[in-house]
Amino acid sequence: MGMRENPNRMLENPNRMPESPTDGTVIERVLCGDTESFGFLIDRYQDDLVAYANYMIGSADDAADVVQDSFVRAYKSLRQCKDPARFKAWLFRIVSNQCKTHLARHHRRHRESLSAAVGVPGDKDAPDTAVEGAELRRTVHEALQHLTVDQREALVLKYIDGLSLPEIADLLSTSQSALKMRLLRGREALRERLQGVAL
């Protein structure tokens, strides 16, 4: 078994934090009182989480609020993260629950385009094609918002965030066979919504 570094000793010399500390190392430091180290976790996951929340609730502003609230909740509950090596899954679960809470409390769905609100970098299409491309993206994004929360969640984690089936099943506390069924229903519903749309 490998030796674990005593986080209290690390606190004596703040320069000893490695450039890319593991989540476990950062969490130990935070729990030992080094509050500022929590910023490492924000830097590491904020983009993925905001993108995920936006796919889930369809509003850039609300997605940022949900992720902000989720990070604060994660900080408050950090001691309850039993396995720091799986912090990412734990954090995604918090955001996922917050998205569901948001959707339950705000029945209306904001479907404003994030590309309009924030801007999607790197669109290298020619102007005409770019307009068509933007419309297509909006259409597909809107179609995603019409799926059930469970279907949308599974599709985003699998095809946007690129998580494996076992990872998603673990994150969503479901079996892989149930997850496959959820993905299948989600894909079918998405195709149904996009019938007649030139892809």
Partner: peptide, 10 residues
């Protein structure tokens, strides 16, 4: 198309 709607954190 969905991936190109991906945004980053403010």
């Amino acid at each position: 198309a969905l991936k190109r709607e991906r945004i980053t954190a403010p």
